[in-house]
Computed example of a mutant assay.
Amino acid sequence: MKRHHPAEYTAKPETWKLIKSNWVLYLFLVPAFVYFGIFAYAPMYGVQIAFKNFVPSKGIWGSEWTGLTYFTMFLQNPKFWDYVRNTVYLSLYSLIAGFPVPIILALILNDIKNSKLKRISQTLTYMPHFISIVVLVGMMSSFFSPQSGFVNTAIKALGGEPVYFMGSENWFRHMYVWSGVWQGAGWGSIIYLAALTGVSPELHESAMIDGANKLQRIWHIDLPAIMPTMAILLILNCGSIMSIGFDKVYLMQNNLNLGVSEVISTYTYKVGLIQQNYSYSAAIGLFNNVINFITLVTVNRITRRLSGSSLW
């Protein structure tokens, strides 16, 4: 007969006792549960559209089941691998280029001793985050215009030929990624700055007494302190590897760069809302989310084994 540890009998009563004694604190969780219930879980009811030939007049329940027809249709699409390749390329490029920049920026800002200069620097690096995507793409179109943009004006002044950056397949990915790095670096550094505030000054003082220079203190004190934060954010970023931002790609997209700018999210928008093929677009979206989920679980497991930090 299996024997139970005494703690197993007391764990559940103790948990309910703690909840009862701190019910006011748990009450604050109700709005969060309601929010996710309404906006995250309730809409999952519509996932079945991906397995039906959805007709709006018949409703979800009245539409006929088609099984995996639309999933097969997407996988057999002649441009399927082009969409996947463009999506993964942009996501990985954004991750590789954008992930270390907020960390480096946070380390630099954390080392500024002058409080006034530090506040000004933080404000200047945060500001691009509040520029809307529409305005950002408009700025890029103006700055890199082959006729009036100051970038091409400088190129012509140096004897070069103007380049249509926004319409070039060779430049599209670089424009997309590095404009995103510029816009998000300051905002992304906030969480690392918060983690760095937990580093005891005594550790740096002891290291300085032992003769450690600034780079050695960053490597052996600051980076280990923010390593758990880095691991969690890396897992979250990898979990959305197939969910490249739709709005910015769509605004930057044109017929000249369509070969590298057509990603899964823009294709889903076109077949779902423009062509009104709701079942097909739902199947593509569900396929995308399943890949993201598998990637999230895999990266979480690898990170837990390598660093000991994970989401669960």
Score class of each variant (00 low, 15 high):
Tyr192Met: 11
Ala42Thr: 11
Trp61Tyr: 11
Ser310Trp: 07
Trp81Met: 13
Asn292Gly: 06
Val290Glu: 08
Thr197Ala: 14
Glu205Trp: 12
Ala106Asn: 04
Gly285Cys: 07
Tyr164Trp: 06
Met73Asn: 14
Ser115Pro: 15
His204Tyr: 15
Gly138Lys: 07
Glu14Lys: 11
Pro78Gln: 04
Glu14Phe: 07
Gln76Asn: 14
Thr268Cys: 06
Gly285Ala: 06
Leu234Phe: 15
Gly308Tyr: 02
Tyr9Val: 07
Gly308Val: 07
Gly98Ser: 01
Thr10Trp: 14
Trp187Glu: 10
Ile103His: 03
Trp65Gln: 10
Glu169Thr: 14
Lys12Tyr: 02
Ile284Lys: 01
Leu105Gln: 08
Pro100Asp: 01
Pro100Glu: 03
Ser279Val: 11
Thr15Asp: 02
Gly62Thr: 08
Ser94Phe: 00
Asp247Asn: 10
Ser148Met: 06
Val84Ser: 05
Leu25Ser: 13
Tyr70Met: 09
Leu117Ser: 10
Val137Cys: 00
Arg305Leu: 13
Cys238Ile: 15
Ile191Val: 15
Phe74Glu: 01
Ser121Tyr: 06
Asp82Asn: 12
Pro102Ile: 08
Thr125Asn: 05
Val271Cys: 06
His5Pro: 03
Ile241Thr: 04
Asn300Gly: 13
Asn277Trp: 13
Phe144Asp: 00
Tyr41Met: 10
Lys113Pro: 01
Thr268Met: 15
Ile49Thr: 04
Phe165Ser: 01
Gly160Cys: 10
Gly186Cys: 04
Gly67Ala: 11
Lys156Asp: 09
Val199Arg: 09
Val263Ala: 01
Thr125Glu: 03
Trp312Glu: 05
Ser240Lys: 12
Ala207Met: 02
Met230Trp: 07
Phe165His: 05
Ser21Thr: 11
Phe74Pro: 02
Val297Phe: 11
Gln275Ala: 12
Ala42Val: 12
Arg3Asp: 00
Met73Ala: 13
Ala32Ser: 15
His174Ile: 10
Trp219Lys: 10
Trp61Ser: 13
Ile244Met: 09
Pro146Lys: 04
Tyr70Ala: 07
Ala283Lys: 09
Ala97Arg: 00
Arg217Asp: 01
Gln183Glu: 00
Pro13His: 03
Tyr83Glu: 02
Arg301Lys: 12
Asn170Trp: 06
Ser206Gln: 13
Leu233Pro: 02
Asn77Leu: 04
Gln122Cys: 08
Ile112Thr: 07
Leu117His: 05
Glu202Asn: 14
Gly259Tyr: 02
Phe74His: 10
Phe144Tyr: 10
Leu234Ala: 06
Asp247His: 09
Asn114Leu: 05
Phe74Ser: 06
Glu262Phe: 08
Ile226Thr: 00
Asn110Thr: 05
Phe143Val: 08
Phe33Asp: 00
Thr72Lys: 15
Ala195His: 05
Ala7Pro: 07
Leu203Asp: 06
Ser132His: 03
Met127Tyr: 03
Pro228Gly: 03
Val177Arg: 01
Phe36Trp: 01
Ser21Tyr: 13
Lys12Ala: 14
